[in-house]
Amino acid sequence: MAETVYFETVAVGDDIPVLAKGPMTTAHIIRWSAAMENWHKIHYDWRYATEHDGLPDVLINGSWKQHVLAQVLVDWVGETGWLWKMNFQYRGMNIPGDTLTAWGRVTGRSQRGRYGVIELDIGLKDQNGKEGSPGTAVIVLPLRDGPPVPYPFHPAALH
């Protein structure tokens, strides 16, 4: 089990451990589409994707990419911190052959009540370093001498 990340140990500018997935293939894409029961042809019908919709290839699901962003954050803070907020835009398309690396960098930190609140920039870069899903996140961490972050989480705990 990962060690507890305490608020005091986190500094603005810190990079959290990255999380890489890939190279992604059509098999990975259809495995996700089937698990989701999402039958959008742009994810598995090459002719439809390229000829009908004019895409460069079938696409890696945006619905899959969002969970990779959540995972890199939850993996970092384990069972003692809380991924409170996360937002991102789908700006780039990703295709088979891409390896995607989720990353996060601390941009702000503040103590609120008896807890620490960490702000981060986040994203999902391809193997060429191109950012396709930029966003931000807010994590709640325990203080060294503080109580555990409540679960279920309630924002009122920060007051």
Binding site: S63, A70, W84, M86, N87, F88, Q89, Y90, P152, F153
Partner: peptide, 12 residues
């Protein structure tokens, strides 16, 4: 139709 993105707030 395209998905532009999400803002999430998690509780449990």
């Amino acid at each position: 139709i395209l998905n532009g993105g999400y803002e999430y707030e998690f509780f449990s």
